[in-house]
Design a protein around this nucleic acid. Structure first.
Lengths: 199, 199
DNA sequence: TCCCTTTATTATCTTTTGTTAATCTCATCC
DNA sequence: GGATGAGATTAACAAAAGATAATAAAGGGA
């Protein structure tokens, strides 16, 4: 039985998937739901799973020597998550991955995904597409630290991810911007004051 | 006639290139030399060329509103350079790319490279390999801003790129670390003082 | 070798951030 | 509805970074 909701979600992975390609993927993918607070993976794991988020929101964090949790990424609807430590660097995950809201995913083991792609060369283009897309985002993020001040990074974040602002505690956003929650609070105040003067 | 130096250089692109694959690439690649100070590309260009650096060193910089040059990347022997604005984002380059030393490259138009890869599926693995490698570096760079202080970033840079330190003006390194040259100077002093006290 | 230009360091001052802790706000659970 | 707890803001101080300018050092070219 074909689940049209699934198809629609998966279809957003890329522009040029044929119905047949989609079927191949769907048959291998598995639905998983994580309640708010549940962990998709934990530090030390070798979990090769690639997740596609149908609904919900997850964060990735790393615990530093001081014991502080540092959030390194947020992902939400129609985005992928794969653990770069495990999949790219071949090492145990330094990260924990946690659902911040009840989150519905489609998941697929990376090696399974690989073999499917190898047996279906047309999917290769999709893989490239996904890799490139992740690369684009990562380049932009990396560049933002070189080109912009913390305040500018915050303003850019607000502009580019307005729908996420009210779904996530600000302290996680602060981490991603490379600043402390206290500093983020001050930046917000500074911006508010500037706007007052302007208005 | 086969240029063995070229083969050796190209071979380092990846682990699993067959001699035949190498020949295909070599026949299409072109040697280009840039003297110190010369530009590989300039801001506004749509240059699709992918460069492989056989010898030498280049930097990528962007000119901000104030007119300052901000160096965003350095590349040297056995590394690739491709303009992400043009190739990934499909827009005119915001960057200038300049040789800091006399630099010998092998270059190939990206579209040509694409069509070669499409005609020789075994090269696809290599493309993946290269994309993944760039992604790894970019992730690490991006993460360093979230996880480490400027001082720690500098120490990491020194540890990971000792051979580059004496080939590049520190102000370019400062840019890449996301700090000002003046601040880098102070960090160096701070580190020197700490070591004195320890010894 | 000497000069000139570029780069690095130092100084001074201002602004921002980090750190820690206290206070405030708000949502939630019993 | 009151208590609880997580998150945000504010305060106060120390540390670090930015900006600008002056000085020192180094490197390259004639």
């Amino acid at each position: 039985m074909i689940d049209f909701a699934r198809i629609k979600q998966l279809y957003q992975l890329s522009v040029n998937l044929s119905l047949k390609d989609i079927q191949v993927l769907i048959q291998s993918a598995k639905s998983q739901r994580f309640e708010a607070g549940a962990f998709l993976m934990q530090e030390g794991s070798q979990n090769h799973t690639v997740y596609f988020i149908r609904k919900g929101l997850i964060r990735t964090f790393i615990v530093n020597e001081k014991g502080d949790e540092i959030t390194t990424s947020l992902r939400w609807e129609n985005q992928m998550y794969a653990n770069s430590d495990v999949i790219l660097f071949g090492q145990a995950s330094r990260y924990d991955v946690q659902a911040l809201e009840a989150t519905d995913t489609l998941s697929l083991d990376y090696d399974t995904l690989q073999s499917i792609v190898e047996r279906h060369p047309k999917l290769e283009k999709n893989r490239k597409f996904i890799l490139q897309d992740i690369l684009k985002q990562t380049i932009k993020h990396s560049e933002s630290f070189i080109l912009y001040s913390p305040e500018e990074r915050y303003l850019n974040f607000v502009k580019n991810n307005p729908e996420i602002l009210n779904r996530v505690p600000g302290k996680y956003i602060a981490n991603i911007l490379g600043i402390t929650p206290v500093s983020l609070s001050r930046i917000r105040k500074r911006i508010a004051n500037k706007q007052q003067t302007t208005t």
